[in-house]
Design a protein around this nucleic acid. Structure first.
Length: 271
DNA sequence: CACGGATCCTGATGGC
DNA sequence: TGCCATCAGGATCCGT
């Protein structure tokens, strides 16, 4: 469920508080998507140096190696000095000198994976095929145009696949395409440079605004301090099937693409 | 090799 | 403590 903005908001909400903390113990619940990939005892005594983000992954830099954390569809992270005992869906807890970092994930599509370093096979298996960061300076129009020219799939699915640009999930894909005036079913290769330019802007602005607002688009999202977003960013089309478009009042439609729901305004968004 | 479908898992919701 | 189908913010694997 968490897309780039929610992961970034989560990161910011605990990165400074966990930096420098020494790992005291680990507590594992049910299996997540992948095994941890190391002996939990080998992490004890190490310091957490920093928390970075790559796509929808949180990267916890340790003195020797890093932990890659993914929230999957239903994951959320809490970091607090005063966390009670692990609950039913708490499947990973890192007890440190500065608090407990805990991953709650009912569906267990998330993961915590150890890698000896960022370029190791373990890390590259997860990070190696990721596209560019949409909010970074590498997300340039020329590169985006070139990448999309090679893709025959519908633009919505290209955005979701994350190998061209990362971080755009099911909600923000619909929102960005609405902002850009592009029908989600349009094949990427068919988009003119001008329309790709609109999409490039739309992706950046929709994600940047969501980060500023604290991940507010998601109904039940809260950061690692348990604070919710401000709910000031209302979805233009996502979840609004049958309701009037906020721009032209045409009824918003929903379709299925690759077993995911897509929402769009048939009038504002051209094929 | 790009594409599209099946798949992992649990919970919420709504119809009957 | 009703049962069943559908849907949910992700991403990998596999057959074509």
């Amino acid at each position: 469920m968490p897309e780039l903005p929610e992961v970034e908001v989560t990161r910011r909400s605990f990165a400074d508080r966990i930096a420098g903390a020494r790992i005291a113990s680990l507590e594992l619940g049910k299996p997540l998507r992948w095994p941890l990939g190391c002996d939990p005892a080998s992490l004890v005594g190490q310091r957490v140096l920093a928390v970075r983000r790559r796509g929808k992954y949180l990267l916890l830099d340790l003195e020797h190696g890093l932990l890659l954390l993914h929230l999957g569809m239903s994951g959320s992270v809490m970091f607090s000095a005063h966390l009670g005992p692990a609950g039913k869906h708490d499947h990973f807890s890192l007890h440190t000198s500065q608090g407990v970092l805990r991953l709650n994930d009912p569906r267990r599509f998330g993961a915590v994976v150890f890698a000896p370093n960022e370029h190791s096979p373990q890390a590259q298996k997860l990070l190696g095929k990721l596209g560019v960061e949409p909010l970074g300076e590498d997300f340039v129009l020329d590169g985006f145009v070139r990448a999309l020219k090679q893709r025959k799939a519908p633009i919505k699915q290209v955005l979701l696949s994350g190998d061209t640009v990362v971080g755009v999930g099911n909600i923000y894909a619909s929102e960005a395409l609405f902002l850009a005036g592009i029908r989600p079913t349009t094949r990427a290769v068919r988009l003119s440079r001008a329309r790709v330019a609109r999409l490039h802007d739309a992706i950046r602005s929709v994600l940047a605004r969501a980060v500023e607002q604290g991940g507010s688009t998601l109904r039940d999202f809260s950061n690692a301090q348990g604070e919710s977003g401000h709910f000031q960013l209302e979805a233009a089309v996502y979840g609004r099937a049958g309701l009037p478009c906020r721009v032209c009042s045409t009824l918003v439609r929903t379709i299925r693409q690759g077993q995911r729901s897509t929402f769009f305004c048939p009038a504002c968004q051209k094929p």
